[in-house]
Every structure is written in C-alpha cells, then in structure tokens.
Simulated assay, not measured.
Amino acid sequence: MSSSVAGPDCCGGLGNIDFRQVARWEQKTRQLSRAFGSPYLACYSLGGVILLLNVLRSHCFTQAMLRQPKMEGLDNPAAFCLGLVLLGVGTLFVLSSFFALGFTGTFLGDYFGILKEARVTTFPFNIVDNPMYWGSTANYLGWAVLHASPTGLLLTVMVALVYMVAVLYEEPFTAEIYRQKASRSHRRS
C-alpha cells in the first residue's frame, strides 16, 4: 500500500463509523438482528467488523509513527522500558476486560439485548472504569514511547479523547439498561 493510499484509508471511510450509533439503531429497530436471524450473529458480525477496523487503525498508527522523525528525549533505554511497562499494563487491562465481558459484552452486545446477569465489577473493573478503553490507550501510548514518536503521542491523545467521548455516551446507557434489568428482576421476585 503506498503512503498516498494508506493515509486516506486510515483516516476516513469505514474507520470513522461510530459503531455506538449503529448499535443504538439496532437497539431501536432490531434490523441487524432480523437481517442476521439472531442478535448473537448480528453482534458477532458487528464485533468482527470492529476488530478488523481496529487492526487497520493500529496498522495506520504504526505507519504514521514510522514515517515521522523520532523525539530525541524519548529515544533512550529508560523510555523504552516505560513503553514496555505501558504495553504490559494496557494488554493486561484489555485482555482481562475481554475475558470478564466475553465477546458480546465487549462488542456492544447490550445494544442487541445480550446482557450479563449483572454489571461486571470484578478485575479489572474494580481497578478502573472502562479498562478496555484505558488499556487500549496505554497500548498506544506504550507503542508511541517505544518508538520515541511525537506523532504517536499526538495520536494517542486523539485516541484518548475519542474514548472519553465514548464513555460519556456509553456509561449512562449501560447504567440504565442494568438498572432496568434489575428493576424487572425485582418485580418478578
């Protein structure tokens, strides 16, 4: 892929779809569930698309860093070790939250009506809210520090800001659906 093609493909197109909007549309209409014949199949399909686009985003992030000059102040063994630690912590948060939530819990299953028995509060959720987002941010930051990349640092800030906006929308929604579920369960008892 030439650099002239890689830039627009990574910065635009499908990578910029707000999947929460797709999921909210699904919650209101159930069109994806009907089209796929199952909310689980629809959720797995959307999750697969999200995963593939995350791979593309990570590739583009790396390419952007490698095409830019390094930051001399970060190009040293201590910063390299810090980058490794950030990657380790980020990976721990991402993987442990994925294992705690499962595939459908990670990839917007609550919008498809696929809920856990209760909101997950075990590790890593007992350490930090939204560990998937902050773990991913730590991974990008660690990768940027490992590569001594000012471009990577700037892109990491952009990723963190997008995640902060996502939390503003997702937190109230998640709290409300689990409140409604608890209310329905309490009435049945």
Score class of each variant (00 low, 15 high):
residue 186 H to D: 14
residue 146 L to H: 01
residue 173 F to Q: 11
residue 33 S to A: 11
residue 179 R to Y: 11
residue 113 G to K: 05
residue 186 H to F: 14
residue 176 E to F: 06
residue 185 S to T: 02
residue 71 M to Q: 13
residue 159 V to N: 13
residue 130 N to V: 07
residue 137 T to S: 14
residue 61 F to D: 02
residue 28 K to C: 03
residue 142 G to Y: 07
residue 105 G to A: 02
residue 20 R to F: 03
residue 152 G to L: 06
residue 83 G to N: 10
residue 70 K to P: 02
residue 13 G to V: 00
residue 43 C to Q: 09
residue 101 L to G: 08
residue 49 V to H: 07
residue 74 L to S: 05
residue 125 F to N: 08
residue 21 Q to C: 07
residue 97 S to V: 13
residue 187 R to K: 15
residue 60 C to R: 08
residue 189 S to N: 14
residue 87 L to Q: 04
residue 167 V to A: 12
residue 181 K to F: 08
residue 76 N to W: 13
residue 182 A to S: 15
residue 168 L to R: 13
residue 61 F to T: 01
residue 99 F to G: 04
residue 114 I to G: 03
residue 140 Y to R: 07
residue 105 G to Y: 03
residue 41 L to H: 00
residue 137 T to P: 06
residue 49 V to K: 10
residue 109 G to A: 04
residue 59 H to R: 12
residue 85 V to L: 14
residue 121 T to M: 11
residue 3 S to H: 14
residue 161 L to P: 03
residue 164 M to F: 14
residue 178 Y to F: 15
residue 172 P to L: 00
residue 75 D to V: 03
residue 59 H to A: 10
residue 56 L to H: 15
residue 60 C to S: 07
residue 8 P to E: 04
residue 12 G to A: 09
residue 28 K to Q: 13
residue 54 N to V: 02
residue 44 Y to F: 06
residue 91 T to I: 10
residue 49 V to M: 11
residue 148 A to C: 09
residue 90 G to L: 10
residue 186 H to G: 06
residue 61 F to V: 00
residue 112 F to R: 06
residue 5 V to I: 09
residue 126 N to A: 10
residue 111 Y to M: 04
residue 89 V to F: 13
residue 187 R to S: 15
residue 2 S to A: 05
residue 92 L to H: 05
residue 135 G to N: 02
residue 180 Q to T: 10
residue 106 T to R: 11
residue 10 C to L: 08
residue 96 S to I: 05
residue 33 S to W: 01
residue 174 T to Y: 06
residue 177 I to F: 09
residue 74 L to I: 02
residue 28 K to R: 14
residue 69 P to I: 07
residue 54 N to K: 11
residue 163 Y to E: 05
residue 11 C to W: 08
residue 156 T to Y: 04
residue 144 A to E: 06
residue 181 K to E: 15
residue 123 F to M: 00
residue 28 K to A: 12
residue 138 A to L: 11
residue 32 L to E: 07
residue 85 V to K: 04
residue 124 P to I: 06
residue 130 N to I: 04
residue 58 S to R: 01
residue 55 V to S: 11
residue 110 D to E: 14
residue 84 L to P: 01
residue 165 V to K: 12
residue 56 L to I: 04
residue 123 F to S: 00
residue 160 A to P: 05
residue 170 E to N: 03
residue 40 Y to C: 02
residue 125 F to E: 03
residue 89 V to D: 01
residue 53 L to M: 07
residue 95 L to D: 10
residue 89 V to Y: 08
residue 122 T to P: 00
residue 156 T to N: 02
residue 17 I to S: 12
residue 119 R to Q: 15
residue 36 F to D: 02
residue 134 W to Y: 15
residue 126 N to M: 02
residue 72 E to W: 06
residue 95 L to Q: 13
residue 166 A to R: 06
residue 3 S to G: 05
residue 90 G to R: 06
residue 77 P to F: 10
residue 121 T to A: 12
residue 111 Y to V: 02
residue 16 N to S: 06
residue 181 K to I: 03
residue 166 A to Y: 10
residue 164 M to A: 15
residue 85 V to T: 05
residue 91 T to M: 09
residue 83 G to E: 11
residue 95 L to W: 15
residue 17 I to A: 13
residue 79 A to E: 00
residue 123 F to I: 01
residue 10 C to N: 12
residue 25 W to G: 00
residue 98 F to Q: 06
residue 136 S to T: 13
residue 95 L to V: 15
residue 10 C to Y: 09
residue 46 L to V: 09
residue 66 L to A: 06
residue 184 R to A: 14
residue 110 D to V: 13
residue 164 M to Y: 15
residue 9 D to F: 12
